[in-house]
Design a protein around this nucleic acid. Structure first.
Lengths: 334, 334
DNA sequence: TCCCTCCGGTCAAACGTTTGTCTTAATTTG
DNA sequence: CAAATTAAGACAAACGTTTGACCGGAGGGA
């Protein structure tokens, strides 16, 4: 069926090794045979078998991506960035979604090992120790996205504490003093707890009181934003602004606020986090902390490539800055 | 470095073939050697080399996905469905994004050929003839999503004409007579032109006049929805409802309507298409035609699996129904 | 005893490449 | 003119599996 080097070799009357070299551009054949080989290869529609090639070269040109959830626009964007760069380097991308379940994560790391991928990008749940050790002693170059491990494995992040701090600072500088927060689940240290920490620190630095009634813990999703906001709206003294740990929760907050007859941003300003697609769909459009999702993916792949090539990483842990995107859900007061 | 069958064989004092059979559960070894082999394999942390295996078995357990754009939540959802089923069958998924560019599509089909994937799912642009023939004579099992070819290659769709018809019919039955449409680009026959066709047919069947001023052609994106709606709002006699060929355009329409001081749905009802994530983020929440995106992906992979296994497909072209999801952007009138 | 059948393996080919070493003839060099 | 170099290619091993064919011995039946 499928045509091999041997087929070409026979037709041309030469040996497989010669064909191989010619097709790979190794300059060792006469112009004549060279042309003949190329012509026959063309005629026979030769398609090199990469799996055979991988076997001997010990290189698959495949990289594996462990991701918790492709439906999440943020992850999708990171994935897109990864794919773009991977493809430009001649690598293919295998994706596997884990739902953040440790068992699945381990399973896929194992699949990647058996498939002899050249590298792994890990962007799933909490990166449990089991995965970490599994990855470490698999000896496969790995980059972790949005999850800080120790420096043994390179990673790329945003600085959640700092970016969250900046968002709250923005509100403070706009004149807000009573600022509530709807955080993501604290169990997610990076984007849940750390964003809360940034909020807290900003209040401290600007001598604003921290108030338990102004805090609601959600799960990053829209519904929990509604719920959280409802809780906050029960306090006697309403906040003038609320900062949410995700755009989805921010949109939920807006809905809850409007449902009580109050206005955004006239009565309460709202700031989100992510700058995903919904932040421009809601009404009013959301002021939010813009995560460089695609850039994270690109950078991650660039780092991974360097590791694969054996280059030294200048920094083993890179932070990309966010940009606060001001739209219509916030206003200056006072 | 990496441990092979040979390493195990030597340690146990047996030959590679025996080890291979034991590890694959072929019942041909004594209980004793069996245990020994398993034990040593465990100790050495043997990880079978799938690329070697693929070479001899002529099977990679990889399927390739050609997708135009992973950032689009609809494509992401389909991808998720595919991955879920693929993984349950023991297949891995390679993704490649093309931006709908023919050149990229051809490039990736070629990569997939060289990588000897077991199957291809195609969900990119217009599926140009070049790709079609390339796929056909590659002899790789293929399923096309959301793009009707001839019956030579299996495909899975929604019936855009019919579903769009149903949406407009819903409006008519809600008492609307003056219904505008913001369509996706006509160049995209399936989801652009066909949805327009369904709209037109519904008007005809219910003896409503078709009016050029009520038609705007967009590009599926939010901005074009705003623009299209603005154009429609310029007509002397305003419509009471507008049907958009995508949720994003519907959201744009809502924004444009609200910007003139009119209300949704009090003054104008709006219906979208897709049921993607933004349809629940906007205000009011969008009534829309719910595409079974994830199911499309699942079904596609199920079909592909059958083709790979050599089973006969009961139907080579499957249509999945949509469900109209009624939220707050529409109301009954009259 | 002879023949047959299992059992528990071994042997070797095959999958489709790459690549280091060897060969042969021709050409160059001194 | 002999020696050295080079050009163009052949040969074979290697990558890590799978799998059909073979094989020696033990046991069983006639």
């Amino acid at each position: 069926m499928t045509v091999t080097l041997k087929d070409i070799a026979e037709r041309v009357g030469v040996t497989e090794s010669t064909v191989s070299r010619v097709l790979n551009g190794v300059p060792k054949a006469s112009k004549e045979t060279c042309e003949k080989i190329l012509k026959v290869a063309e005629e026979l529609e030769y398609s090199p078998n990469q799996v055979a090639r991988s076997l001997v070269k010990q290189k698959t040109h495949v990289i594996g991506l462990v991701i918790s959830d492709i439906y999440n626009p943020y992850f999708a964007a990171v994935t897109g960035g990864i794919e773009e760069i991977a493809s430009s380097y001649g690598y293919s991308l295998i994706i596997s979604t884990t739902g953040g379940r440790e068992k699945e994560e381990l399973k896929y790391i194992n699949v990647f090992k058996e498939k002899r991928v050249d590298g792994i990008i890990f962007m799933s749940g909490r990166m449990p120790d089991s995965c970490l050790t599994e990855i470490k002693n698999s000896n496969i170059p790995t980059v972790v996205v949005a999850r800080k491990i120790d420096d043994s494995v390179p990673s790329i992040h945003i600085d959640n504490i700092k970016e969250s701090y900046k968002a709250v600072e923005f509100l403070i500088k706009s004149g807000h003093q009573k600022i509530a927060m709807i955080s993501g689940t604290f169990a997610d240290v990076e984007s849940g707890y750390n964003r809360f920490l940034g909020y807290k620190k900003a209040l401290e630095d600007y001598d604003l009181p921290f108030c338990d009634n102004y805090i609601a813990e959600g799960d990053f999703k829209l519904a929990s934003g509604i719920e959280g906001m409802r809780k906050i709206l029960k306090t006697k003294e309403l906040p003038t602004a609320v900062f949410a740990g995700s755009d989805a929760m921010a949109v939920g907050a807006i809905k809850a606020i409007k449902a009580t007859g109050l206005q955004v941003p006239e009565d309460i300003s709202v700031v989100g986090f992510d700058n995903n697609i919904i932040s421009k769909a809601c009404d009013p459009e959301l002021t939010t902390v813009g995560q460089p999702a695609k850039s994270l993916g690109k950078k991650a792949m660039e780092m991974l490539y360097k590791v694969i090539e054996g280059e030294n990483l200048a920094e083993r842990s890179i932070y990309l800055p966010c940009e606060i995107i001001i739209r219509d859900s916030t206003r200056k007061i006072g």
